[in-house]
Design a protein around this nucleic acid. Sequence first.
DNA 1: GAAAATTAGTTGCATATGTAACTAATGGCG
DNA 2: CGCCATTAGTTACATATGCAACTAATTTTC
Lengths: 165, 165
Amino acid sequence: MARQQLLLAQFLPYRLSIAMQAVSEGLALRYSQEFGISIPEWRIIATLGENSEMTARDIAVHARMNKTMVSRAAADLVRRRIVTRRTSREDRREAFLRLTRQGEDIYAAIVPLALDYERGLTAGMSGAEVAMLRRLLDQLLGQADKAAEKLASEKSAAADTAAAE
Amino acid sequence: MARQQLLLAQFLPYRLSIAMQAVSEGLALRYSQEFGISIPEWRIIATLGENSEMTARDIAVHARMNKTMVSRAAADLVRRRIVTRRTSREDRREAFLRLTRQGEDIYAAIVPLALDYERGLTAGMSGAEVAMLRRLLDQLLGQADKAAEKLASEKSAAADTAAAE
DNA sequence: GAAAATTAGTTGCATATGTAACTAATGGCG
DNA sequence: CGCCATTAGTTACATATGCAACTAATTTTC
């Protein structure tokens, strides 16, 4: 029986990680200095650009950020008058965030940059390949989430067993 | 003329980032507590598992890590006797790193975990799809690197122009 | 062959990020 | 109504990470 082999260069989590890093850095370079926007800030701006008004919680769910990161990045965007915060009347714990006029301008300026960058990334691919890539990435995400849930449920089951002893 | 639109959920850099994050976290969960190994440490172990002896510099190039990260993770692995360091005779600046017996045991224990995890990730895909995913990720990386180089050369050209003024 | 430039690796420092604890507000349930 | 649990959001703290400056060794250049 042959021993299982692992080649890091072929290993999917590794390839995903290095591709992501190169892609993210490349994109961030294009807007970070010019607009003084960090990656988490860009995610918030992009999310608010699509859905005019959202709470921090909704942004966190929608953009897969943790709530600490949203809180901090949003606070800075508010300070810089790129985003406004408006406390909800119905539930005074939550606050609606919205792009200011300036925020909309920044969004409008970054969108073409981002789309252009994306086009460059997929330069050598057919439309079908790009679609396939999107689909396969989505499947990876789905399977990773599924594996995480499974692990979590095993863990809580083990904790229950321990507690019952 | 229709204004260009961006949908974050469809945007490749974003999808890549969230898929990578879920995949990396899921994998790290499987070895981090049990073996007390961080992601950078795992990269070094995996690299040394393939190439028995390497310098920190070679590991950094091979595993796309920056030299600070390699230096720090390697120092910790040496401290924990998972890796040994041997200064080169020919060039006393560099040192060869190598897995200890214990390091090899850890590598041998993690490899099946990692491969199993990878199999789970690609559970719903055909072999051709997995191969295509690898290829497309590689193309993304290549294009991102190319874009980075282009940006860097433009920048240095601009610096030269400024210096000449 | 000595000074200057380069390279391997480490470390100081500033920043980024996640977890957990916290505050403030709301909802559930007796 | 009043207590307990839950939730939105912030913050304290510990850790992670990258850049730049550094040391030590080697190579290049004149």
